[in-house]
Design a binder for these strands. Sequence first.
DNA 1: GTATCGATGATCT
DNA 2: GATCATCGATACC
Length: 186
Amino acid sequence: MTLPPGFFADRAETVARALIGATLLVDGVGGRIVETEAYDAMDPASHSFRGPTARNASMFGPAGHAYVYRIYGIHWCLNFVCGDGIGSAVLVRALEPLAGLDIMQARRGGLEPARLCSGPGRLCQALAIDRRLDGLPLDRPPFALLPATGAAEIAIGPRIGITRGVETPWRFCLRGSPYLSRPHAR
DNA sequence: GTATCGATGATCT
DNA sequence: GATCATCGATACC
């Protein structure tokens, strides 16, 4: 089973919401997506706001591919590109770890499950995501994306860690999940 | 429990 | 030269 064709052709805001409850695996390791954020080219918080550059090239590439970038010189962040060539993407911020717990704990120093993938940098470390995966399609190995099994109750709030575009409430969480990067506001 | 700070380097002004 | 879509350690309450 996989996500329906055209899933990533929609607006980032719509895709970010629809991804809550879906399962992300990289080489069989991963879990259920419980937190996402949307970014697009009209959005001053987005890397794509000032147009294409070497770093954000994948964000202006085809839908359904990965955009992976380094932040603060230390951590990696994983995005799913939405739309074709329009600089739109969804940041994956947190997973509920389900597959390959032992592998993820080995990569992250034997942490408790609630801390393994509860943040964009943390989940990239747990799933061994780095520059090598930038631009790769999400419907083929090492990636696997499986649809949500049931309806998810979504909490919406402001995005984390940005200084511009703060008024746009494009953070989506699985309500009440203990695996979020931070608790949701409402 | 919350607050603050340094790491660390690519990217962009 | 400034800015980061972050994290973990530390200090303090």
